[in-house]
Design a binder for these strands. Structure first.
Length: 434
RNA sequence: GGAGGCUUCGCCUAGUCCGGUCUAUGGCGCCGCACUGCUAAUGCGGUUUGGGUUAAUCCCCAUCCCGGGUUCAAAUCCCGGAGCCUCCGCCA
């Protein structure tokens, strides 16, 4: 939800934002009208309630002779209040309805245009040259016994997979590396629930535009999250946070479930687009004035992670028309996929300003001690399946083995290469002293 | 799955049986003022959150876990739900 005060005081700013997104500008005027209507309804109901309260007290102090007349008046007022409250409720609902339809106000820096108008900010790392025919990650992974897509389909259907042997170890290695780096950067690690209540899903905005993407557990009225952004954001729902020491950083681990309803025929091969994967997600709660800097910080952490994995990538600034509902600004990092000869999205970080926190009622105390709506930001640190896909492709060798980036080696028992049929190694802690 | 208990303004708590200055009691904490070499102690005053109105204050409305209902009037009575705790059953 956007700030109503902004709409009242600077409707032109919101109109411009709607224009930039290619969204409906007239919603702004509908919202203004609904706001006026609501305030009128509130005032009428408040005034009547005040009168009725007085009348009700009068019943008590009335003499027996006055009593019937006073009681009649109180009854009449009670009926009027009931009616006025119904009007208030209707006006409230009407306002909320329009309010929820308006996406966040885009930042001035956001490039204009739509899906194809993202601006590349920088490209990092050299695109590797291969003196052999490159295979895609599925070929590489199957040959190494790391990915079993066929059995995934047998057991669970299309877009499901088994990670086996070195593939399974890779997942743990990536998780350890990501969480370890996050903790070193001051994040609080969190294992978040992947099933959430409707309030959490609604509050984070995923039942709006992403409704079709969401798995629903009808019987228990719960949803499977598509990202731990949902439980992390909702974790502090209805709370007042202490942000006086700077933003709060969480690194959440959870499985992520996506129906991929609108993507038939897209990325049907391998681990690029699957119904389920695990992910380490960064999430910050910050003061609204700190979000721009915080956003760049999240982006920097994402970049450092990909650099540690020795993956070439580029950073793109997403255009207004392609922003999510709650985002003010969004950067994606696209990594190089040699089999496709192109960069593909590996991480994404959004500044949501106060949009998400307003709905979830997450606040902090400002310098005067007054509660204010907080701001939220999120960013992918490591979407495991897709990252494995990228690693297998970029680091593949002529002999079918895969080079292991230095940073990952401690988590894979020190190996520098994954080869078919190799004996597996994993880090084990030192045993008890002999 | 079954039975019972609990949920009050940051924390603790009175009030709920028997509806009406509950415009919610007291303590802790916090803020201000007074006293005081300083601190402590003491005294006085303030201290939920949201909405409406306003230049701002004043003021008004709502808020006793949430949602309905009864009533002129609900923290209090009735119905439904959530969370927490205890016991039983089942279970990684």
């Amino acid at each position: 939800m956007i700030d109503l005060r902004l709409v009242r005081e600077h409707p032109d700013v919101v109109r411009a934002s709607q224009r930039a997104r290619g969204a409906d500008e007239s919603l702004v005027d509908k919202l203004l009208a609904a706001d006026v209507a609501r305030r009128e309804a509130v005032k009428r109901a408040d005034d009547l309630r005040g009168e009725q309260k007085a009348a009700s007290q009068a019943v008590r102090s009335a003499t027996p002779e006055e009593r019937p007349a006073v009681l009649d008046r109180a009854k009449a007022l009670a009926a009027q209040v009931k009616e006025a409250e119904e009007g208030e409720r209707a006006a409230d609902a009407a306002l909320r309805d329009v309010h929820l339809q308006i996406p966040n106000v885009v930042a001035d820096e956001v490039p204009p245009g739509g899906e194809d108008d993202a601006v590349t900010i920088r490209t990092v790392g050299d695109i590797p040259a291969y003196d052999f025919p490159v295979r895609d990650h599925l070929e590489v992974g199957e040959a190494l016994g790391a990915i079993d897509m066929e059995r995934g389909a047998k057991v669970s259907g299309a877009r499901f997979y088994f990670l086996t042997g070195p593939g399974a170890l890779l997942e743990f290695a990536l998780a350890q590396l990501a969480i370890g780096r996050a903790v070193a950067a001051g994040f609080t690690p969190v294992i978040a629930p992947a099933l959430v209540k409707p309030e959490a899903m609604e509050g984070t905005g995923f039942l709006g535009e992403h409704d079709e993407e969401v798995y629903r557990v009808e019987r228990d009225n719960l949803y499977l999250v598509g990202t731990s952004e949902v439980p992390l954001a909702a974790m502090h729902m209805d709370e007042v946070l202490d942000l006086s020491g700077g933003p709060r950083h969480y690194a959440g681990w959870s499985s992520c479930f996506r129906r991929e309803a609108g993507s038939y025929g897209k990325d049907t091969r391998g681990l690029i687009r699957v119904h389920w994967f695990d992910k380490v997600e960064m999430f910050s709660f910050s003061r609204p004035e700190d979000t721009a800097a915080e956003h760049l910080q999240l982006l920097a952490w994402e970049e450092e992670f990909l650099q540690a994995l020795e993956l070439p990538y580029r950073v793109v600034d997403i255009a207004a028309g392609d922003l999510g509902t709650s985002a003010v600004r969004k950067f994606d990092i696209e990594a190089w996929f040699p089999s496709q000869g192109t960069y593909r999205e590996l991480t994404s970080t959004s500044d949501c300003g106060t949009f998400q926190a307003r709905r979830l009622n997450i606040r902090y105390r400002d310098a005067d001690g007054k509660p204010q709506t907080a701001a939220t930001l999120n960013g992918t640190l490591c979407a495991v399946a897709r990252t494995i896909a990228c690693l297998l492709e970029v680091h593949q060798q002529a002999d079918g083995s895969v080079y292991v980036p230095v940073a990952l080696r401690p988590w894979l028992g020190g190996i520098d290469r994954i080869t078919a049929g190799m004996s597996l190694a994993a880090p084990i802690p030192p045993g008890p002293p002999a």
